[in-house]
Design a binder for these strands. Structure first.
Length: 316
RNA sequence: GCACAGGUGGGUGAGUGGUUAAAGCCAACAGACUGUAAAUCUGUCCCUCCUAGCGAGGUACGGAGGUUCGAAUCCUCCCCUGUGCA
């Protein structure tokens, strides 16, 4: 068994304590943190994304946080490329990479790769969006019946992507899928999953969302709107959307807070349905900041390291 | 006290005599997800039973009666809530 360098992945729903645990492991093992979060990628989005604070970021190197301008359109493919670049850099430094994932698709793109498909094409999409869902689905049925069978007619974004792929490559998307993905290689991947009890999680989500409003989410949102306008994608994400509605006078403060809390709760649930399918996850039913979880995670990492260094082919 | 308005399934809210276990929305629960993914979408959602179905039965529209072949819908009384007048 070749001793590949270890790659720790921490996954779980929002507010499950991923950041806290990642920091702990990074300090303990000399790790570097790679964020896997579709909104924290953008600069200026601090409070609403619950990014680690400046001090926290000082405790260990952080990557893919704050590294894109919000006017840019980052996709899962770009994220995966960037992530892999960063991972190989960390490896070359001999440090322990710790991926902290909340965005299921990005995590999958990073670890397992995407199928060899084309990037999105805005012009084509503009034209397609004008058609109604039923027509679009019929178009897809002609281009790729299998894809059409798997994608619901109402799921317009996915129908459009499938049509886009077929038209751009002149092949069926499902045929391209058969060529497989391009998984990340060269690492021994260990997935640690945080899955605290739902009611406890929801309580934590509620108080954290409230705190975001109390500590300047509205001001942050206002600044972002002034700087970039209302059209940028991350402004429609959890918390920012509600703060923007408040600013526009469409909601009262209390309504905005309640709506943000609700949105976060719904999101956490969706995250869990995604992560439950993730392969080879070592689950623990607690928050990442609990002592027993830290010990549990530390123990796992330590044991795997011991195995690696004891191997005759191990890299120190 | 009088006058209006109103009390519907976990919430909101349609429905004003019959294809109504009761629209829609929300929540909840389960699921999908291959370059917008903090997005988008799907299913279930009163109870029980089975041959698991556009199946059978039982409950249900504040409460109690009544009219009717048939009521969430009409009538009577009672109980609550809101608003206005006293």
């Amino acid at each position: 068994m070749a001793a590949e360098p270890l790659l720790i992945v921490i996954l779980g729903p929002t507010a499950s304590g991923k950041t806290n645990l990642s920091l702990h492991l990074a300090k303990r093992f000399g790790g570097e943190i790679v964020s896997c979060d579709s909104v924290a990628l953008y600069s200026g989005f601090e409070i609403g994304t619950a990014k680690p604070s400046i001090e926290e970021r000082g405790q260990a190197p952080h990557h893919l946080l704050d590294c894109f301008d919000p006017t840019e359109h980052v996709t899962a493919g770009e994220y995966a490329r960037e992530g892999r670049r960063v991972l190989s850099e960390i490896e070359s430094r001999g440090k322990l990479p710790i991926v902290v994932g909340g965005t299921g698709l990005y995590l999958r793109a990073l670890l397992e790769g995407l199928f060899p498909g084309p990037a999105r094409s805005e012009e084509l999409r503009e034209r397609l969006r004008e058609r109604n869902p039923g027509r679009l689905h019929r178009v897809l049925r002609k281009l790729d019946a299998n894809a059409a069978a798997n994608i619901h007619e109402n799921d317009t974004p996915k129908v459009i992507r499938a049509i886009e792929v077929c038209l751009a490559t002149r092949q069926k998307m499902t045929d391209l899928w058969k060529r497989g993905r391009d998984p990340l290689t060269g690492f021994r991947i260990v997935r640690l999953g945080l899955n605290p009890e739902r009611t406890l999680l929801y309580t934590r989500i509620n108080s954290r969302a409230l705190k975001m409003f109390e500590t300047g989410l509205i001001e942050e949102t206002r600044t972002l709107i002034e700087k970039y306008g209302t059209g940028i994608w991350p402004l429609s994400s959890l918390g920012y959307k509600q703060a923007a509605q408040l600013i526009r006078g469409e909601m009262t403060l209390n309504e905005a807070i309640a709506a943000a809390q609700q949105a976060h709760r719904n999101y956490a649930k969706r995250q869990m349905t995604w992560f439950r399918r993730e392969p080879d996850v070592k689950w623990i039913h607690s928050f990442g900041d609990e002592l027993k979880v830290r010990d549990w995670a530390e123990d796992i990492v330590q044991r795997l390291r011991a195995v690696m260094t004891s191997s005759p082919f191990g890299i120190s």
